[in-house]
């Protein structure tokens, strides 16, 4: 008690003795906190993000016109653009796109439905799991592209091996994700469903499949990505139409401009399909809070 008094009286003494502290204090280094709006001045973000690709094309163009990059190695952007327009005009490019898209989509339809069907069967039934899951887990380690020789022997060199390759490649991502989705459905919701008296069929329809849907859509995106990859490989095998055919023709004649056009088309088709899946997610997964705010 007395020491506390002592201490406070001493503090009071020093405080009284010290001169007013403020002016003699060394200046504190300070920083102004800017409101977010102030930082957003300048070039809009969208334009800034475009700058990289535009710069790249600019350099590409510069190298082409100066002759540093010979047309045999890589055609300049101008040439690529004009040959794209020409290919579009003659109808070669649209035809090739339709042929390739048809292959990709029919392969995906076949492979996807097989993948989903197997996943639902092995996800819902113990018997299905025992029969299917270990087999699928084993087969998925085989690189699909390595199957091309076998597919050619089985299906010849027409459309079938190409579609079969795409179907094989797309079945696995969908299988794995739908299966995981079904198995990871929130057990507390399944229990709630049981207390509500849901029959097995009603449980599958109202709880398990909707619960697996987010994973299924992730699987769909993987499958679409892989279907494009499989398409590129498949179309290298004696194609008579499609983007791959355009490309291998161009290779014969060293038309690097056409090859670049085909690459760009592959990329754009991939982007378009991805956009569609995003849209699908927005509609089907509207119940997720992440999508209600938008």
């Amino acid at each position: 008690m007395s020491t506390a008094l002592d201490l406070s009286s001493r503090q009071a003494a020093t405080r009284a003795a010290a001169p007013p502290a403020l002016p003699e204090n060394p200046r504190i280094a300070r920083q102004r906190i800017l409101p977010a709006s102030a930082e957003r001045r300048g070039i809009p973000r969208g334009i800034r993000r475009m700058a990289g690709p535009v710069l790249l094309v600019g350099i590409w163009h510069l190298l082409s016109v100066t002759g540093t990059l010979p047309a045999e190695v890589l055609a300049g952007p101008g040439t690529v653009l004009s040959s794209a327009a020409k290919l579009w005009g003659t109808g070669e490019l649209p035809d090739a796109m339709v042929a390739s898209l048809r292959r990709a989509l029919s392969g995906l339809a076949i492979g996807g439905s097989i993948g989903v069907a197997l996943a639902v069967f092995s996800g819902l039934f113990r018997l299905g799991e025992d029969l299917i899951d270990s087999t699928m887990q084993m087969l998925r380690t085989v690189p699909n592209v390595a199957l091309i020789p076998l597919l050619i022997i089985w299906f010849g060199i027409g459309e079938e091996p190409k579609i079969a390759l795409i179907a094989l490649a797309t079945a696995f991502p969908l299988y794995l994700n739908v299966y995981a989705g079904i198995r990871n459905v929130d057990q507390t919701l399944v229990e709630a469903g049981r207390t509500l008296g849901l029959s097995r069929a009603a449980m599958i329809r109202n709880v398990i499949l909707p619960g697996a849907l987010p994973n299924a859509l992730v699987g769909l995106r993987y499958s679409l990505g892989i279907s494009w990859l499989a398409l590129v490989f498949g179309e290298q095998v004696n194609a008579t139409e499609g983007i791959g055919y355009l490309m291998s023709n161009a290779r014969e004649f060293f038309q690097t401009d056409v090859i670049v056009v085909c690459l760009v088309v592959y990329a754009l088709l991939g982007l378009a399909v991805d956009f569609i899946v995003r849209l699908l997610e927005k509609v089907l997964l509207a119940w997720r809070p992440a999508f209600t705010g938008a």
């Binding site: 229990e191 709630a192 207390t195 909707p210 849907l213 119940w287």
Partner: peptide, 23 residues
Amino acid sequence: RAVAFQAPRLMPWKKVWRNVVLG
């Protein structure tokens, strides 16, 4: 009989009224 759990356990993919009459 019916149960209400500590967590509401509503099906997130069904609108509230559909949750109520589910089953």
